[in-house]
Design a protein around this nucleic acid. Structure first.
Lengths: 164, 164
DNA sequence: TAACATTGTTTCGAAGTCGAAACAAAAGTG
DNA sequence: CACTTTTGTTTCGACTTCGAAACAATGTTA
């Protein structure tokens, strides 16, 4: 037990928390590397494409996409511009609401996603799940889900943050 | 179950993985906000100071510090410059090895850390642990620790990356 | 000891992120 | 119907991160 843990809370809670942080950071490194190698996309771009691919007709409003991926709206604009330049998505103005922009995944975008998913799954499998039984995975998922739900209720959405 | 989960792996594994990712991101947002408010430091700076505070005599080589906090060396140089300007740490050249630089936390740095820790603990407690029993926390910590250990073995250190 | 490789750090330039401000359209209000 | 507020997005500027290259000191080896 390090003194860091003493300082921050010398108990199981800190251990769980630091394990979570480090696990996520390491996973991120591995995934980013794989995604770049297999398909020339970053992790963020992968998540954006995947969110679009699963949405009805492959389309989502910019704001909704930003909120699901937890990015600032301006950050999404940046990524959308890059993905658009790469031909993996396109933006369309909405007809009902002239303010609104809809992001749509292209066929090329879907192909790129498929190209990259097997490797992605392999990384996640090797990094997270090879060391756990099916039942342990289930228990882990339940606890993380409880935490996620709790945290969602504590963090304001990007729209709420704007209103201040 | 969303089609995103279908695309990426429609099972408990994906659920565990996405819960992990979202939980960590949300936690990060909350912690960063609290740390800025209570002590004018970012999350990264907090972790750097905490690592130093726990080290013998409050000192660590730059490279070792970079590796524990998982930053690039250049990223650490940047943060060290900022923390030094804020008077929270200082850098000293090593006497045995003239190449080496040692980061040392200052008294002011330790005070800042103490000022910020109660709020930090409160956020972690409220966000992660209020929804779990002690025993559940223990189980969560065990699983996350297994994953972390596994991932550590898969990710090369910053020194190894350089040679690669 | 003269290369040559390795190790420790910083500098530099390219990306990516965020929030505030700017714009634009829609909705609400007197 | 003006006028104000809200909502959807992008632009802008500040900050942070990373990796490659530059620098500097050690080690190694012929």
């Amino acid at each position: 037990m390090s003194e860091f843990e003493v300082a921050v809370g010398a108990d199981l809670r800190s251990q769980a928390y630091f394990a979570l942080a480090e696990a996520y950071n390491l996973l991120q490194l591995l995934m980013d590397e794989q995604l770049r190698r297999d398909g020339g996309v970053t992790y963020v771009q992968f998540v954006l494409l995947a969110q679009l691919a699963q949405a009805p007709q492959g389309r989502l409003r910019m704001t909704d996409l930003a909120d699901t991926v937890l990015h600032s709206r301006s950050g999404l604009t940046y990524q959308a511009t890059r993905l658009e330049a790469a031909g993996l998505l396109r933006r369309e103005r909405s007809e009902e609401d002239e303010r609104s922009v809809t992001a749509v995944i292209t066929d090329e975008g879907r192909r790129r996603l498929e190209q990259v998913i097997p490797g992605h799954q392999a990384v996640v499998q090797a990094g997270m799940f090879d060391v756990l039984s099916d039942n342990q995975v289930k228990e882990l998922a339940e606890k993380l889900d409880a935490i996620r739900t709790r945290l969602r209720s504590m963090v304001p959405s990007s729209a709420q943050r704007r209103r201040g």
